[in-house]
Amino acid sequence: MRLAILDDYQNAALRMADWSSAQQIEVVPFTDHAHDPRQLVARLRDFDAVMRIRERTEFPRAVLEALPRLKLMLATGMRISRSVDLPATRELGITVCSTEVHHHTTVELTWGLILGLMRRIHAEAASFRAGGWQVGFGRGLSGKTLGVLGLGSMGVPVSQIGKLFGMNVTAWSPNLTPERTAPHGVTCVSKEELFANSDVLTIHIPLADSTVGIVSAADIARMKRDAYLVNTSRPALVDQKALTAALFERRIGGAGLDVYDVEPLPVDHPYRSLPNVLATPHIGFVTEENHRIFYEQSLENAKAWLAGAPIRVVNGDQASELIK
């Protein structure tokens, strides 16, 4: 069985699992990203199986139909099915397996970005490496207002840490009520209040048709001039044009961003050079522990499939616990 591993940016695929324990699998990692579907099809034409990391590569029906040899997809940490056409995989006889993932790594990165923005760690660290000493002032968190857009499995832990830092924590989402925020010690506010009053606003709402562009130009225009917007969730939740314009014109304090419309982010994209952007390369889930889970469970998934008894299947008759 020929297995292609896509988007292995860190060149880690071969060391992350003991592939030698499955002699019948020939593993071929690709460290660069195929942006163009035709390039992707050309790359995968001679493979029986493909492993993909999270949602780095999308598999629409057209791509799947162009890969007649493909029989197994090893998905990893799959949470929503928007990026793979699951009905098409069923019709085409492609088994899709997935793995677990620790989501709290995104909560950790969110706080890394919030603290980095508020205390200007990146600017101070860069100046320090270049021989400097204390070039500016950070802002303390205590007493400031944290706005959490979406108080779900990510938003709740993010809000609790904000409270422990002494922040006044508010939340909004389309169906959020004071009854649901109260047990977390979080104030339920209107969308207008959330944007107008937050010193830090962080987005933790799932992407769905109803939430595309939920952060609009009008919302961004309401933000305080020194407020920070943090997005470790999905790029399409935010009107990216409006955000870029606000950052260019310094209408908000800045942004902490981990997710982008096009990934890897183009080399000439303004988010790479704007002074008020703290940008990380979509590393919300990228930790040693998650990669171990992805690779070790994918190897198990591949072996089980080869043995005719596939496990962790997410496109079968029984809905897997792995996919919500």
Partner: peptide
């Protein structure tokens, strides 16, 4: 974070794997 941030400035993408 400072390394990944700096590398974003320099045009690269995901050079490290962090710790949970």
């Amino acid at each position: 974070l400072p390394d990944e941030f700096q590398r974003m400035r320099e045009g690269s993408w995901q050079q490290t794997i962090g710790t949970t």
